[in-house]
Structures are given as C-alpha cells and as structure tokens.
Amino acid sequence: MWFFLIGIAIGVIVWKFVIIPKQENSNGSSKAKKPLTHTVKRDTIKETLTISGELDAEEKITPRFQSSGLISWIGVKEGDFVKKYQLIATLDQKEQKKNLEKYLNTYLDTRWDFEQEKDEYRQPAQKYWGLTWDQRNEIDRALEQAQFDLNNAVLDVELKDILLKYTTLTSPINGIVTKVAAPVAGVYATATQAEFEVINPDSLYFSLLPDQTEVTKLTSSMSAQIIFDSYPDEKVIGTVQNIAFIPKSGETNTVYEVKIVYPLNDESHTKYRIGMTGDATFTILEKPDVLSIPLSFLKTEKDKKYVTKLTGTKKEKMYVETGIESDTAVEITGGLAEGDVIYD
C-alpha cells in the first residue's frame, strides 16, 4: 500500500515539474521561431521632422514707472484684460504739480525780463543811429542772453510737464495682466518695484529651436502639425511665420528660433497659455505610389542594406537600395519588386 502511494506521488511530481515545462518550452519555442513576413507593396511614404517647442507671445511687455514715488492708485489686478492705452496705475502727483507750477512762474518772470530787455536795448538802437559797433554788439549780446534764458525757462516747464505725465502708467497694447508687482496703493516704490506685465493672447505663437542641421529643412510658410502636451488628442495646423537669421543667444548649442502661428479664437485666450509645450511635425518630403517596406525588415551589413527574401521555397539575402524614410517605413528603389515576400 505504501509503495503504491509513493509511486503515485513520484508520478505527479514528474508530470508537474518535468513533462509540463517541456511542453510549455516546446510551444513557446515554436511560437518564437515563427517568422514575421511582409509582402512588398506600393504606398505613400513621408519623410517628417518633429521638433519640440513651447508657446510664447509676440506682444509681451513690462510697463513700469520712469521714476520712484508714492503709488496713489492701482486700477488692475492679475487676470484683468486691458485695452490699448488704458490707465493702469498712478503715482502721487502733488509734488510734480507744484514743481510744474513753480517753473511756470519762473517762465513768466523770465518772459517779462526778456520783454524788458527788448524795450531797453532794441528801440534805442533803432532810434539813434550814432551808436558805435561795440555798443551795437553789446546790445545784441544782451538780447541773445535774454533769449537763451527764456528758452531755458520754456524747456524747464516742458520737462516738468513730462515728469508729471510719467506719474501715470498706461498699457501700450491690448492684453491680459499677468503680473502686478505692487498690488497695494499707498506705498513708496522704486521704478523696478512697481512694474506690471501685460501679454496679448492674440499674438501667441509656437516657438521652436531647431539646430543648424534641422533649420535648413524648414522654409517660410511651411505647414506644421502641432500636438500640445496638454491636449494630446488634438491636432493644430500652423504655418511657419519666421525663421531667425542668427542663432538664439543664451543657448548651449547653435539653435535658431522658428515661429509658428496658428488660428486663434475667443476660446484660445483661456485654452492656450504661455509656456505650454508640445511637438511640431513637418512633412519634409512626400512620395506617393512607391515601393516601401517596414523599417524593422531592413538590415545592415558593412554599410550595405539587405532584406531576407523568399525565393521559391528558399530564403536568401537580398541587397536593396533605399530612398526616403519615415518613422516606420522606408522607400525601396532597387532590389525588390511589388509582391515579393520578405522575412523579419
């Protein structure tokens, strides 16, 4: 009885750990050995170039006051939309207005002095022709000096008027306020502390930085398909607007900025934002109705390209000539014919 039970146990162990694994290995190896085939056919093949980039804006400004002062009023906050020439903030104008009034009084005083000089020197010089040349020159110099003083007084008034205008800050573009460095009025701030940032969402463009080998393949008005990382299921068609002539400074490699514009609408203002990244794909070359095979079937041997071709019932190495390539396929220009069967 015991011998019978031991025999059954040994049989189970042999079946589980010897026979079953052999069958599984046999099945797996047969599946692995089954080769992949492909029938050569004609297709449209595209050579593409994909470059990563990010969104930027053509109209992006940082308005700031020209001088320091007490901020008396702030009329915007981050996220507000402003129109061109809209008032953003003001500095306290009391001091500037008083200075302008003071220099206006100085101008009037200088003006009266100038008129007095004319009355004292010019009229006698015209009435009495017996004056010497030295006396005439002295009169002319006195009048010229009075004119210079008057001109300087006018310039002082104009300069103070300019400083008064500098106490108001306006936006030179339409756009969204993205930064308010001093959001509270009633504090003293320098010109750099009281700055704002305004970006026009209608001037968005997709910025690329191709290197010197890639930029030569691009041309103005070339079409590009953009896929943003934020919207991977959406494709946006854009057009190359500008290709920089000089490399972009501050980069470690030699790269050139390429600007791509795309259709914008009201939804774009909230959908697309500065700094969003994505990929732009260009079709460099497209050939319809050419022989092509998947890239995975193409092999290389000593700088020569070949495929494994079925000839009759035998497989043989067939050297081929190739043309353009896409991400998944390659054009065959020689060595194969339509209908040939090749192996991976």
Rank of each mutant, 00 (worst) to 15 (best):
A32Q: 02
V198E: 05
K217Q: 06
V184N: 07
G175Q: 00
D202R: 11
H269N: 09
I162M: 10
T44K: 00
T132L: 11
V261Y: 00
N27P: 02
E58T: 13
F206T: 02
L150S: 12
E251N: 08
M222I: 01
D279P: 02
L159C: 00
Q93A: 14
A146G: 15
Q123E: 13
E24T: 09
P232E: 05
D149Q: 12
L208I: 02
Q241M: 09
L208G: 01
V255D: 04
S326A: 03
L310V: 09
L36C: 01
N174I: 03
S67Y: 13
L150E: 13
I10R: 06
K287F: 08
V18P: 03
R64K: 15
Q86N: 11
K259D: 03
E257P: 15
Q212Y: 07
K102M: 11
W133A: 14
Y103S: 10
F114R: 08
P201R: 08
I260L: 12
P172C: 04
E101T: 08
I162G: 02
I342S: 07
F17W: 13
S230F: 06
T178N: 11
K33H: 00
E47R: 07
T110D: 12
S268M: 02
T132F: 13
G186Q: 05
A181M: 03
A280V: 09
E321H: 02
V177G: 06
V330F: 06
G238R: 05
V184S: 06
V236I: 15
T239M: 07
S292L: 06
R141Q: 15
V240E: 10
I74R: 00
I246S: 14
K118R: 06
R122P: 02
S221M: 11
V236T: 05
T313P: 01
G250K: 07
D149C: 06
I71T: 01
I74D: 00
A142M: 04
D266R: 11
T300C: 08
N25K: 15
E117K: 15
I88Y: 08
I173T: 05
F228A: 03
N200M: 07
T300Q: 10
P294A: 11
S326Y: 04
Y272G: 08
P288E: 12
L285M: 02
T213V: 03
E115Q: 13
G69L: 08
A57Y: 01
L143E: 13
E47S: 08
S72P: 13
T254P: 03
T311E: 10
S26Y: 09
E158K: 15
L163D: 14
F245N: 14
L55F: 07
P124A: 08
I226E: 04
E117Q: 13
A89M: 10
I260R: 04
V255T: 13
I324P: 01
G69P: 12
K309L: 05
E117L: 12
K287I: 09
T62N: 07
Y343F: 06
T270Y: 06
D140E: 15
A146R: 14
K287H: 14
Y262V: 03
T254V: 14
M222Q: 04
A329V: 05
T252E: 13
F148G: 11
G186T: 05
V76Y: 11
K271Y: 02
N242Y: 15
T216W: 00
F282P: 10
R136H: 14
